[in-house]
Design a binder for these strands. Structure first.
Length: 266
DNA sequence: TTAGATGGGATGTACA
DNA sequence: TTGTACATCCCATCTA
């Protein structure tokens, strides 16, 4: 790449960062058309000019109808009835992060945005919008990753592999979990809801976005003290899932059988 | 057997 | 300056 291109890219990066900061500062998830457009002469993915995101809840599926969220279904590690183990806490997922001033666009926000962009359907698509399940298109997943990398202002080219790694990190917090299907992931219902699409609500009196610790990975070492928490009991989970889909129970049962069979966590 | 997908530890970076 | 959260790198393992 010529130095001219490099300088141009640097300028783009600066503009992007400022723009991101400006827009997120105001709490509006709007995106700059300038981003993702390759500089003159730069080869690469044909990133899309951003199409204003329409987040009308009407257009979105109802979580209560088809939602499947098997990955957060409690498994055998749930305490037995009456068990009084110390309460386990789960972080509240909030787009406006608990860390004040954290305004950077996050990957799951970008993916959500891409899912609503007609120009990106060849890279990422809903598998089941109702359940928040989406998948990458194998042929063009790298394109999406490159767009993400440029969006972040990375010097190096983002790859699907790296992007997927970041996605897997989300499984620790429950924002996005991996589905046992090729190139397929699933949004946390609360994340979808906060992004303006989901309707699924947690049990009455509880805030949204909490997942059983078992689903958060093996080492959820620390949780910010300034996050909100909700500590559902096993029975609450079952009530919740039972309310929203009978499939939950079936999947819960299946998960139970599977975990019983191999003695491992899901 | 192999390419692609996935998992996870180590490390880098931004921010309060 | 330091701690934390998150992103990225890199390599091992899994799977179709």
């Amino acid at each position: 790449m010529s130095s001219l291109d490099s300088d141009f890219q640097d300028a783009i990066d600066v503009i992007q960062r400022d723009a991101d900061h400006l827009y997120h500062e105001s709490g509006i998830n709007h995106y700059v058309t300038l981003e993702c457009q390759p500089p003159p002469g730069r080869q690469g993915a044909t990133c899309y000019p951003y199409t204003p995101l329409v987040t009308s809840p009407v257009a979105m599926a109802d979580w209560g109808e088809t939602t499947s969220w098997p990955h957060i279904v409690p498994d055998l590690s749930l305490p037995p009835p009456g068990h009084s183990e110390p309460t386990q806490f789960y972080p509240v997922m909030q787009l406006s992060r608990s860390r004040k001033g954290r305004k950077k666009l996050r990957l799951f926000e970008y993916l959500h945005e891409a899912l609503h962009d007609a120009n990106m359907v060849d890279s990422i698509q809903w598998t089941d919008r109702g359940s928040g399940t989406f998948h990458f298109v194998s042929k063009n997943k790298e394109k999406l990753a490159e767009c993400w990398g440029r969006r972040k202002g990375n010097r190096k080219t983002m790859t699907y592999q790296k992007m997927a790694r970041a996605l897997r990190n989300y499984s620790r917090t429950g924002e996005i979990v991996k589905v046992r299907r090729k190139l397929t992931y699933q949004f946390n219902p609360a994340i979808l809801q906060r992004l303006g699409t989901g309707h699924l609500a947690p049990p009455a009196g509880h805030s949204v976005g909490h997942m059983p610790r078992e689903t958060l990975g093996s080492h959820q070492h620390s949780v910010s003290a300034d996050m909100g928490y909700y500590a559902p009991s096993g029975s609450e989970w079952q009530v919740w899932y039972g309310q929203h889909s009978s499939a939950y129970q079936a999947e819960y049962d299946l998960a139970t059988v599977l975990t019983s069979a191999d003695g491992s966590k899901i």
